[in-house]
Design a protein around this nucleic acid. Structure first.
Length: 890
RNA sequence: GGGCGGAUAGCUCAAUUGGGAGAGCGCAGCCCUUACAAGGCUGAGGUCACAGGUUCGAUCCCUGUUCCGCCUACCA
């Protein structure tokens, strides 16, 4: 026969987690319908990339959302957490392209249709991976409502939004420089470009003045672009150069002549004060070119593939841009046109997907005119209709939104939402949610759809309402929009959060969510960002296997609010596994002591002070935990639960209960309180550690369980507190710790029973202590205790002065008198220091007259207590000293 | 260049609006006390980065400095 689960010495998560997750799924407990009449509460998951594997960020993100949703569900809300994945255009396409590259093919050989089929096939094989991983974390998402950004419904939402914005003039097409990734062969939005500081070279090139007299020196970090220069700009206010404006340069390595122009944006102090202008390959230069009248022409010398074009001239055409750079510099050197080269640190844009250096390239692209949308989104946050938590992020949000530039939404890839625009040979453009049969202008059926797809974030921006069924009306939509909270990391605040707010306001007429909770980034132990290339990634699934999802979740929650970063270390998870084990063993103890024994029928059967106390403490903890969760202070909530379970419930109450259980009359009440407090802490902890709490909760007697799962049990709140019991227990606790301190410091053997005198300051305390002598004896290892007010101190005793009482432990023969004197001396110095600090304040006229009355009163009370303590310690020391001297003399 | 955040115990970090700083881990001592050694009891350890200012009083508010991190920007 195997040991029953509940009696094993330690908690083993593996099989138990699977068991309960299946149970929850089977019972449909993740659906909002379990609380049909509750107030709706809804969170949409930040959809992870369908190509993704669960990483630490997902794990933290999912944990926090699950804590919120489980908590709200237990509070009776109609709670809905909508899961799903994102089609992740570029990332997914890259993954599948790599796969087919192994077959020595590329997507063009396959053709668009076949390639798309391959991606869908890949998605059906691997796309469920991250969903499966979320389940391992215990996520209570309603999987029946799972969505994918390329679902038919979501695609319709995307087309609908596109058409509407187009019709309003908020989507337009334009040819201008955009960020181009020469490896992914697509345009990128400004946000998708990562700037990194790099060491480069600033090359000073002599540009000969036409007509053969002298030259102008320009500085550049990209010498190869000189082949596409169409001008040189100087500041018109620059006396060195102003009279050159209007003259021409013989552009080296080409046979072109280019003008010297004036532009106020040129910094006179930087470089030589003269700048080459390459409108086709530099955003600034494009601006300068446009400002000229007539505008400077564009010469594109670098193509979409990052190689030099025919316009670069026969010597350079076809070269990679970096090879060309070397050759151009070499050629210029031969011509004696390089003045100097110096090291230069500057920041360079890289593709956020493949890290290739971005090339500005002029191509036709679709844009969203963003300013009108941003204006409303700024207002929503300013007016508090969307709260960003922590508040500090609002600044970043405003800063970005106020300087926002039009959003390039077209991508030259195949995987994604095809742009719903068709072109006719007659020149007509058709924009429609459905594929048009013929051209409305000429009737031709030869319509060609725009080959590009939309930025993935375009569809993600619609997520809070597209997942609820929009553009169809649905019950979910009227119940759950606006959603309640959005939980995410700051790195997609602009990419995603801001755009959702814009689209929600535009298409739903209301914000997409009330609260945005921005959580930390998970870093490694050294504080480095986890990345595959650094090899410092910790796989959350391995942590779950090793320590269980509960310990892992609790760790993440407990460290969630420590500022922006969480430094993750396995040691911490190990620590919280100990916590779970503590809970497990407390439950085991309670089960052993309640099974087949009388349990009081409710709270009225509870008569003993410790039981009243723990129930009151439970009420207090519940209140604080609820308050913390209301404010997204996950760490405070988790730590309060930790403190309650370990310090108050296990260290104090269970130990006290061992005595209470020996009292035949009180025992049923103690048993009820043990179960009641355990039930309470299980419920409080359930959102953080769903599995172990369910496992234990299911073993509680039926009267403590009002439903089939702890998931739908009522979350403790609004429980009555019992100030009288708390005050009474303080006295008991002081008596016990007072004795323990002495034992500990004087190294009394744990087995040795000591005789104790307790001198209480009030009759009330005397009564309380007297009534609880069995508890004190047991927990403090005392064999006899004499209690009274104004007790005469014994001749030879160690003393400990507390705030409600003082404790004497006669130390006849037991103790080194000298050591005890040292200990008391230290105590005395501490007390005196505090007292003099206190007195100094009270003697200060300014303090007494200007500080608030209650602060002064507090200081006065404190000084009285310290005075008392001081004289008590001095008395004890004097007694010991006389003994000491007797011994010396005798 | 602009902006934001951080500097508190050996380590990692807390501290609801200004009134002599807490936790976890670690460390030291003593204990296999029948829920738990993944445990219990006790203890040591902090001029709250630096310099000024406001205040009766500053870890907290203001200014400046140093050192870290991050976001953002078209100085070629």
């Amino acid at each position: 026969m195997t040991e029953p689960e509940s009696r094993k010495k330690s908690y083993e998560p593996g099989a138990i987690e699977q068991k309960w997750y299946d149970f929850w799924l089977e019972k449909g407990l993740f659906k909002p319908e379990v609380n049909p009449s509750g107030k709706p509460y809804c969170i949409v998951i930040p959809p992870p990339n369908v190509t993704g594997q669960l990483h630490m960020g997902h794990a933290l993100n999912a944990t926090l959302q699950d804590v919120l949703v489980r908590w709200k569900r237990m509070k009776g809300h109609r709670a809905l957490w909508i899961p799903g994945t994102d089609h992740a255009g570029i990332a997914t396409q890259n993954v599948v392209e790599r796969q087919i590259a192994k077959e020595k093919k590329d997507r063009h050989q396959l053709g668009r249709e076949e390639f798309i089929n391959r991606v869908w096939k890949w998605r059906s094989e691997y796309g469920g991976r991250i969903i499966h991983q979320l389940k391992k974390m215990g996520a209570s998402c309603d999987w029946s409502r799972e969505r994918f950004t390329l679902d038919e419904g979501l695609s319709l939402a995307v087309r609908t939004v596109f058409v509407k914005l187009y019709e309003e003039g908020l989507i337009y097409r334009s040819t201008r420089l955009i960020n181009w990734c020469p490896r992914c062969l697509t345009a990128l939005s400004d946000l998708e470009v990562e700037h990194e500081e790099e060491e480069g070279v600033l090359t000073y090139i002599r540009y000969p003045l036409a007509g053969g007299k002298g030259h102008l020196v320009v500085a550049t970090t990209r010498p190869e672009t000189m082949l596409g220069d169409t001008g040189v700009a100087v500041n018109p206010a620059d006396e060195r150069y102003s009279e050159l404006i209007g003259r021409k340069i013989d552009l080296p390595l080409t046979c072109r002549q280019i003008p010297i122009v004036g532009d106020a944006a040129v910094e006179m102090e930087f470089g030589t004060g003269a700048v080459k202008v390459t409108p086709a390959h530099d955003f600034n230069d494009e601006e300068i070119a446009k400002r000229q009248n007539p505008a400077l022409p564009s010469v594109t010398v670098i193509g979409a593939d990052g190689k030099m074009t025919g316009q670069a001239g026969p010597r350079y055409a076809g070269l990679d841009r970096y090879e060309c750079r070397r050759l151009v510099v070499e050629d210029l050197k031969k011509l004696g046109l390089i003045e100097k080269e110096e090291k230069y640190g500057h920041s360079i844009g890289h593709c956020y997907r493949c890290k290739t250096v971005i090339e500005p390239l002029a191509t036709p692209q679709w844009y969203v005119k963003i300013e009108p949308l941003a204006r409303e989104a700024i207002k929503a946050v300013r007016e508090g209709r969307v709260r960003i938590i922590p508040e500090g992020w609002e600044n970043s949000y405003f800063a970005w939104m106020e300087n926002i530039r039009d959003w390039c939404i077209s991508r030259q890839i195949w995987w994604g939402h095809r742009i719903p625009v068709w072109y006719c040979g007659c020149g007509q453009t058709v924009v429609s949610t459905e594929t048009p049969m013929k051209c409305p202008l000429c009737g031709s059926t030869e319509l060609k759809q725009d080959p590009d797809v939309l930025d993935t974030w375009f569809s993600s921006a619609l997520w809070p309402f597209s997942t609820l069924g929009w553009p169809q009306m649905s019950e979910d939509m009227s119940s759950f929009y606006p959603t309640d909270a959005l939980v995410t990391a700051f790195d997609i605040l602009f990419f995603w959060v801001a755009r959702m707010i814009m689209m929600g306001l535009k298409f739903m007429g209301d914000v997409p969510f009330r609260d945005v909770y921005i959580h930390a980034l998970v870093r490694d132990e050294e504080g480095q960002k986890m990345s595959k290339s650094k090899g410092n990634v910790v796989d959350p699934l391995l942590i779950v296997d090793k320590y269980g999802a509960d310990a892992f979740r609790f760790t993440l929650a407990a460290f969630a609010a420590q500022g922006r970063d969480i430094k993750f270390s396995e040691e911490r998870v190990k620590g919280y596994r100990h916590f779970i084990n503590k809970l497990w063993n407390a439950a085991k103890f309670i089960s052993m002591n309640t099974e087949d024994r009388a349990v009081a029928d409710g709270k009225h059967g509870v008569t003993d002070l410790p039981s009243r106390w723990i129930l009151s403490r439970l009420a207090g903890a519940a209140q604080e935990i609820n308050e913390a969760l209301e404010q997204y202070r996950f760490n405070d909530a988790a730590n309060r639960a930790y403190q309650f379970l370990w310090r108050e419930f296990c260290d104090w109450y269970i130990e006290l209960a061992k005595t209470g259980l020996e009292n035949v009359e009180q025992a049923p009440g103690v048993r009820w309180s043990l179960l009641q407090a355990l039930d309470g802490i299980l419920r409080l902890l359930h959102p953080f550690m769903p599995f172990v709490t369910e496992e234990i909760w299911q073993t509680l007697p039926g009267t403590f369980r009002e439903g089939e799962s702890i998931m739908t049990a009522v979350y403790p709140s609004g429980l009555p507190q019992d100030a009288e019991a708390e005050e009474g227990m303080e006295a008991v606790i002081e008596a016990i710790t007072g004795i323990r301190n002495i034992r500990g410091e004087l190294n009394v053997q744990p087995g040795a029973r000591v005789k104790v005198l307790i001198n209480a300051w009030s009759e009330e305390t005397v009564r309380t202590v007297l009534a609880h002598l069995p508890y004190i004896k047991r927990l403090a290892g005392a064999e006899s205790i004499i209690v009274g007010k104004g007790l005469q101190a014994p001749q030879k005793a160690a003393v400990n002065v507390m705030s409600r009482l003082e404790v004497y432990v006669p130390v006849e023969g037991l103790v080194d008198v000298k050591a005890e004197l040292e200990r008391l001396g230290k105590e005395l110095r501490k007390t005196e220091d505090e007292l003099s600090f206190c007195m100094r304040k009270l003697m200060d006229q300014d303090f007494v007259s200007r500080a608030p009355g209650q602060v002064v009163a507090k200081e006065q009370a404190k000084s009285r207590e310290l005075e008392g303590r001081k004289s008590n310690i001095e008395d004890s020391m004097n007694r010991l000293k006389s003994i000491f001297q007797e011994a010396e003399n005798g």
